[in-house]
């Protein structure tokens, strides 16, 4: 969902730039609480993994593809503030080095994938976790549902931005229907990848999963002893 230069007009791009800068600024301060000697390398790995995952486009039919956005995944694995920074770093590298996502659209892309994707993905994850049984096995399921919702949510906010500052004269209703429709399908792929990756990490190192805190206590203690 990388927005290129030109889709949105300058005022809208400046506005999303301000939103992105504010969001990243807050995340930089709050991420400190999530990061220590053990989780900081994990967060670097999560950013690198999301970069790699975003290269794997999967077909979703009719000549369209989707790829992992990674907001929900990163938030569940390393916490929402650090997760937002992970996605922002990925988007920065992509726009600076890969010509993927416009430079003037970097604020828009950070807002959509780094902020909306992470906040919605993590909020749904937390809500679902309240309903599910308090056990480790619930974490990948909740993460997958957060991922599922996060993609159409980001697509909806893109359409909102397009309605405000789209440079082309196109029916917003048509854009909304197509964006949400396709991104629900892409969201299913996002959910599958997120669920699988979170279960794989939980199977080997539940203590490294931010979203599993409090559920992994006994295992974490045991692993801690071995690692120490």
């Amino acid at each position: 969902m990388h927005v290129p230069d030109g889709f949105l007009d300058a005022p809208t791009s400046v506005a999303t730039g301000v939103v992105a800068a504010a969001g990243v600024g807050i995340a930089l301060r709050r991420a400190r609480a999530e990061l220590d000697d053990r989780t900081a390398p994990m967060a670097g790995l999560v950013a690198a993994f999301v970069f790699a995952g975003q290269m794997i486009n999967f077909p979703v039919g009719a000549g369209t593809s989707g790829h992992l956005l990674g907001g929900a995944l990163a938030a569940v694995l390393v916490g929402p503030w650090t997760g937002a920074l992970c996605i922002s770093v990925v988007l920065l590298v992509q726009s600076l080095f890969m010509a993927d996502g416009g430079l003037t659209a970097l604020g828009t892309n950070i807002t959509l994938m780094g902020l909306v994707g992470v906040v919605v993905g993590y909020a749904v994850f937390r809500l679902v976790l309240v309903v599910l049984p308090r056990k480790l096995g619930s974490v990948p399921v909740a993460a997958a549902l957060g991922a599922l919702v996060s993609v159409p949510a980001a697509a909806t906010v893109f359409t909102l931005l397009f309605a405000i500052g789209g440079t082309a004269d196109v029916s917003v209703g048509k854009v909304l229907a197509a964006m949400v429709g396709w991104h629900v399908v892409i969201g299913i792929g996002e959910a599958v990848v997120t669920g699988l990756v979170v279960s794989a990490v939980i199977a080997s190192r539940p203590d490294l999963v931010h979203g599993a805190r409090g559920l992994a206590r006994r295992t974490a203690l045991r692993t801690g002893e071995v690692a120490a």
């Binding site: 593809s65 789209g166 964006m179």
Partner: peptide, 21 residues
């Protein structure tokens, strides 16, 4: 990986704002 356009690119092309990129 699939080389098809991603969701946004596809929708942009279909609904007619792809050329504004």
């Amino acid at each position: 990986a699939s080389s098809h356009p991603d969701g946004l690119e596809y929708v942009a092309g279909k609904t007619g704002f792809g050329d504004s990129a």
